[in-house]
């Protein structure tokens, strides 16, 4: 237990006071015999358990999965429009990203040797089960598309694999938002409507960043355009998410999460602006912008992850919104009876 109880009281009491009743005995100046937070929480202890996942593995997986999935769409578009160099590098990038992300997932298991149990059942109520099946369909497609493009063999199979990866890719990029949101973690579940859009915008930024880094500038028109769309999408969906969260939005602004998400905003906007304004003229700027977009996307995922952990570790973020919801319900109930 690192958090002291008076920190919790400060966190709970110092916020905008959206909870209708700033209730509880012991708040009103009398010298408390026991920690004041006892009245809002049990010795400041978290109500729910934060995920035991390592940020490197799981936030890293969110980033890499997005990069791979969105990259497959970009690759298919490039393939279709004759931007062969872009298509090839993006297919290779998607294969590398999805391979790394699968490795991160297995590495994060408590029993890595039992990873195959993920495919023991098909369970639509478990986003992780859905995701495992999705990955096992997407991975081979991304692999085949990359191998055919790199070797120039079996072009027809390559086209089919490219198309399949482009259809499955967006699902790979979006489902991780559901994975995070289908938990009791206040900063994730609270934005279960917005998070998928944040994640696909971030994935688009990453993929277009990768294209700017790897592909020749003469082919990078679509990537530059996508980078701008992604940046606009990410900024607007993130602010919608924060509005939805009310007091829990603090977790997106403070501490490690706050730093990461501020960095993400700066990097994404700067990357998109650089790409749009000078990405065609200067190869150096294109590469620099691409790196910023990639870094921005990673910061978004690590920031959202950190916000979730912070919101789980502080009982205020579990208790206060639930209390507010319960009081609202109570009022409705009373009105109904009257």
């Amino acid at each position: 237990m690192k958090r002291r109880t008076d920190d919790v009281t400060a966190a709970a009491g110092g916020t905008s006071g959206r909870t209708p009743n700033a209730r509880r005995r012991g708040r009103n100046g009398e010298e408390p015999m026991v920690p004041r937070a006892t009245f809002d929480s049990y010795y400041g202890r978290p109500v729910i358990k934060a995920p035991g996942w390592s940020a490197r593995d799981i936030a890293g997986y969110f980033f890499l999965g997005g990069l791979a999935g969105a990259g497959s769409v970009l690759a298919a578009g490039a393939h279709l429009t004759g931007r062969t160099a872009t298509a090839t590098v993006m297919k290779l990038s998607s294969l590398a990203a999805i391979t790394l992300s699968a490795a991160a997932l297995v590495n994060d298991l408590g029993r890595p040797g039992r990873f195959a149990n993920m495919l023991r059942v098909v369970k639509p109520t478990s986003p992780m089960s859905v995701g495992s099946w999705l990955l096992s369909a997407y991975g081979p497609c991304a692999g085949a598309a990359a191998l055919c493009a790199a070797t120039g063999r079996l072009p027809r199979a390559g086209v089919a694999a490219t198309g399949a990866a482009a259809v499955l890719g967006p699902a790979v990029a979006a489902y991780t938002a559901v994975l995070a949101a289908d938990t009791a973690v206040p900063a994730w579940h609270g934005v279960h409507r917005e998070l998928p859009y944040v994640f696909v915008a971030s994935a688009t930024a990453a993929a277009s960043g990768m294209a700017l880094v790897l592909a020749p500038s003469c082919e990078s028109g679509p990537a530059r355009c996508a980078a701008v769309l992604a940046a606009a999408g990410e900024i607007s969906t993130m602010s919608a998410a924060e509005r939805r969260l009310g007091m829990v939005a603090e977790t997106y602004r403070e501490g490690r999460a706050g730093r990461l998400l501020r960095a993400a905003r700066v990097l994404t906007v700067a990357g998109a602006a650089g790409a749009a304004l000078y990405g065609r003229r200067s190869r150096t700027v294109a590469v620099g912008s691409g790196v910023m977009l990639l870094a921005g996307s990673a910061c978004t995922r690590f920031g959202v992850f950190a916000a979730g952990v912070a919101s789980a570790e502080d009982p205020a973020y579990t208790v206060r919104p639930q209390r507010a919801a319960k009081d609202r319900e109570g009022l409705r109930g009373a009105a109904g009876c009257a």
Binding site: A70, V73, A166, P170, A177, A184, V200, V319, R323
Partner: peptide, 29 residues
């Protein structure tokens, strides 16, 4: 927790938004 919920309750809504988001990713490109 004063008012716990099983978050799977919202799964249909979440999948709907994820599907829309996936389509918007395609649309964006």
């Amino acid at each position: 927790p004063p008012a716990p919920v099983v978050t799977t309750r919202d799964l249909p809504v979440m999948w709907r938004h994820a599907a829309t988001a996936a389509l918007s990713l395609m649309g964006g490109f």
